[in-house]
Design a protein around this nucleic acid. Structure first.
Lengths: 151, 151
DNA sequence: ATACATTTAATGTTACAACATATTTTAATT
DNA sequence: AATTAAAATATGTTGTAACATTAAATGTAT
């Protein structure tokens, strides 16, 4: 569906404004879909992203700082997201020995199982991340353009 | 800057996952920039978007429903956003005569002046909406790909 | 060694998003 | 006409984002 119809705005000032609005709208659209899916697993989107970062580190722990570095939304509150994950038993948090300012955040077996379960149930989603309608070369083009936007 | 470096993740499962993450990251990146700019005008991003919708209707009023239709984030709380804009004097809200369930939301002169002021001060921003690094044809490509993602 | 600066994480606070529910008015059904 | 359904907006509630501040540990300089 064309962005003009999605937000019922027939014209834009120029193609750049249209691209900007289209980008914001589409990203939001994808995010809503993903959030809806993860609600079935009692997970918010930021929580899911943190879990994936921790799986990427496993079996090594991650510090809160490392999590922030790898998060999409840098301003988000990593410490409190970890709180939630600890409360749900998907993550452990222990003070680091070498640098007692930092903290070792480690995904648990249950956390890994949860991610595995999500992977299996949402195979299509995970294979294409909501990009089913794109060819590989289109996805590559998109990556190039997005990198270019950020300069 | 490549997305790999932005979030310090050297590889992705496939080009689709990479495009998905890139899209989320870039949209968030643009949003943060815009939010920062609008803070100078005591405006949040949703408030600014509603103001622009109302300018698009001017001199006709808009209902809350029309605002929701045209908003990028449909789940957002249009009624309360209008509250804020009324409190700041940039918008008026009066009960509609023909259908007393609905409400006429109208941008004020001050509201129009605010937008004009923003337009003038942020000329570059507004001309390209943060897409300075894109050619016209790239912006068009981007629009096509984004429309395709949403099916 | 002491004093000062920096780093890391946690916490306090405010505003807003998300979701559900209520209220008022209009439309539809019998 | 009365009853019920639907529509439009407002409001209540909960959780979280955004931002600032604090607290503790480490690094650095004199």
């Amino acid at each position: 569906m064309r962005i003009e119809d999605e937000i019922k705005q027939p014209t834009f000032r120029n193609v750049f404004q249209k691209a900007y609005i289209n980008l914001a709208f589409t990203a939001n659209w994808l995010q809503m879909q993903a959030a809806q899916t993860f609600k079935n697993y009692d997970l918010t989107l930021p929580q899911f992203n943190v879990l994936r970062i921790l799986r990427g580190q496993h079996p090594n722990p991650a510090t809160v700082n490392l999590i922030i570095e790898r998060m999409l939304d840098k301003t988000s509150n990593a410490s409190r997201i970890v709180d939630k994950l600890v409360a749900k038993g998907w993550v452990t948090r222990t003070q680091c020995e070498h640098d007692r300012r930092t903290v070792d955040v480690l995904i648990t077996e249950e956390g890994l199982n949860l991610l595995k379960r999500i992977d299996e149930c949402e195979q299509t989603l995970n294979a294409h991340m909501g990009m089913q309608h794109l060819s590989e070369s289109e996805a590559e083009q998109l990556n190039q353009i997005l990198d270019k936007i950020r300069g």
